[in-house]
Computed example of a mutant assay.
Amino acid sequence: MTIDGERKITITAIAREAGVSVPTVSRVVNGRSDVSPATRARIEELLHEHGYRRRTSRRRDRAGLIDLVFNDLDSPWAVEIIRGVEEVAHAAAVGTVVSAVHRRSTSTRQWLENLRTRASDGVILVLSTLQPTHQAELRRLNVPIVAVDPAGGPALEMPTVGATNWAGGLAATEHLISQGHRRIGFVAGPPRLLCSRARLDGHRAALEAAGIDSDPELVRPGDFYHESGFQAGRSLLDLPDPPSAIFAASDQMAFGVYEAVRQRGLRIPDDLSVIGFDDLPEARWSSPPLTTIRQPLAEMGTLAARTVLRLAKGEEVESPRVELATHLVVRDSTATPTPRPKRR
């Protein structure tokens, strides 16, 4: 039986001609992988032959959902991004599904399966890595995707929303130099992430502009979390000639440095100036309040949500990559260095 006489091309008609069930055709149409290659090829041939088009806009309109996906949810900046996305979603009467894949392949596969079932209007990714197989699966699902990259972004062709990390690194170090610091420690984020490298490059650019040599001994690795800041802070304070200031590439690592200073019986900023990056809500309530570089996390979430909803409506975006400005927020954790004798 052919479907040439059908007034409207339907999945039921395609299934009849292919000699398969309606659910099988539906799985092919929706990019599911649980169909044999031969059957998939036959169905796709018929879909092309008869000019079948998925009614994606209607499906997405009915879904009324945005998927927001993180590596982890145990970071305060994740809460800020969620706050920005929720503001837009609420105004648009769209729900938000928040997931964490915990950097595990099995978690990502489970999320992708759930995404197929939900048929969300769009996806906002806040991920540092994404396997090529998962990237291909997202493309097959044919849903709008926007990446938010305070901690990097997957290598997919998609709009991205970020911040001026290099300029922030430059501003933080220039602030310390303006106060008279010349020996400045730096606690870096993961080197695989673009934002980490940009903050370090900005730091080095400020040193170079001031005629200060960039000393590798003063750079310590971190992962944006408290413990790495604590360990890096201890290591820098144990140097024979410790720095008079430390620039931590995230507020959480700066708070780790705070604890290292406290355990040494030292005081901030009397014995050590500390500056962070993010301007998390707790930065203003720390003791002393933390000088930091404000990264507009909530605004990044807001822009990502607006962008993904525009894409879901079939609209174009002005630029594939947007960087929102960072700026220095001066509080009480930085001051002019107090001269001290070098350790023997």
Results as ranks from 00 to 15, higher is better:
Met1Gly: 13
Met1Ser: 12
Glu6Gly: 00
Lys8Asn: 11
Lys8Val: 15
Ile9Gly: 07
Ala13Arg: 08
Arg16Thr: 04
Arg16Trp: 04
Glu17His: 11
Ala18Gly: 10
Gly19Glu: 07
Val20Ser: 07
Val22Gly: 04
Val22His: 09
Val22Tyr: 04
Pro23Asp: 09
Pro23His: 09
Pro23Met: 11
Thr24Cys: 07
Val25Arg: 07
Val25Ile: 09
Ser26Phe: 05
Arg27Val: 01
Val29Leu: 08
Val29Ser: 02
Asn30Trp: 00
Ser33Phe: 00
Ala38Leu: 08
Thr39Ile: 13
Ile43Trp: 05
Leu46Lys: 04
Leu46Tyr: 01
Leu47Met: 14
Tyr52Thr: 03
Arg59Leu: 13
Asp61Arg: 15
Asp61Phe: 15
Ala63Gly: 09
Ala63Trp: 04
Leu65Thr: 13
Leu68Met: 08
Asp72Ser: 15
Ala78Asp: 06
Val79Arg: 06
Ile81Asp: 02
Ile82Gly: 02
Ile82Glu: 02
Val85Met: 06
Glu87Ile: 05
Glu87Ser: 14
Glu87Ala: 15
Val88Thr: 09
Val88Met: 07
Val88Asn: 01
Val94Asn: 10
Gly95Val: 01
Thr96Trp: 07
Val97Pro: 00
Val98Asn: 06
Val98Arg: 08
Ala100Cys: 11
His102Ile: 01
Arg103Ile: 00
Arg109Lys: 11
Arg109Ser: 14
Trp111Thr: 04
Asn114Pro: 00
Leu115Asp: 01
Gly122Phe: 08
Thr129Cys: 02
Pro132Gln: 10
Ala136Val: 09
Gly153Trp: 02
Met158Asn: 03
Pro159Met: 12
Asn165Gln: 13
Gly169Phe: 08
Glu174Cys: 02
Leu176Asp: 04
Ser178Asp: 12
Gln179Leu: 15
Gly180Pro: 11
Val187Glu: 02
Val187Lys: 02
Gly189Tyr: 05
Gly189Val: 04
Leu194Arg: 14
Ala206Val: 03
Ala209Ser: 13
Gly211Trp: 05
Asp213Tyr: 05
Asp213Ala: 15
Pro216Glu: 11
Phe224Val: 03
Tyr225Gln: 10
Tyr225Val: 06
His226Val: 13
Phe230Ser: 02
Gln231Ala: 14
Ala232Gly: 14
Ala232Asn: 03
Ala232Asp: 03
Leu237Ile: 03
Leu239Lys: 05
Ser244Leu: 09
Ala245Thr: 02
Ile246Lys: 02
Ala248Trp: 08
Asp251Asn: 03
Gln252Leu: 12
Tyr258Glu: 02
Glu259Cys: 06
Glu259Ala: 13
Arg262Ser: 11
Gln263Asn: 04
Gln263Tyr: 03
Arg267Cys: 06
Pro269Trp: 06
Asp270Arg: 14
Ser273Ile: 09
Ile275Asp: 03
Leu280Cys: 04
Pro281Leu: 13
Pro281Gln: 13
Pro281Asn: 12
Glu282Lys: 06
Arg284Tyr: 00
Ser287Val: 14
Pro289Gly: 10
Leu290Ser: 07
Thr292Ala: 07
Arg294Val: 01
Gln295Leu: 09
Pro296Tyr: 12
Pro296Asp: 13
Ala298Leu: 01
Leu309Val: 03
Arg310Asp: 13
Lys313Phe: 00
Glu315His: 14
Glu316His: 08
Glu318Pro: 01
Ser319Gln: 15
Pro320Cys: 13
Pro320Met: 14
Leu324Asp: 03
Ala325Lys: 12
Ala335Leu: 02
Thr338Glu: 10
Pro339Ala: 14
Pro339Tyr: 11
Pro341Thr: 14
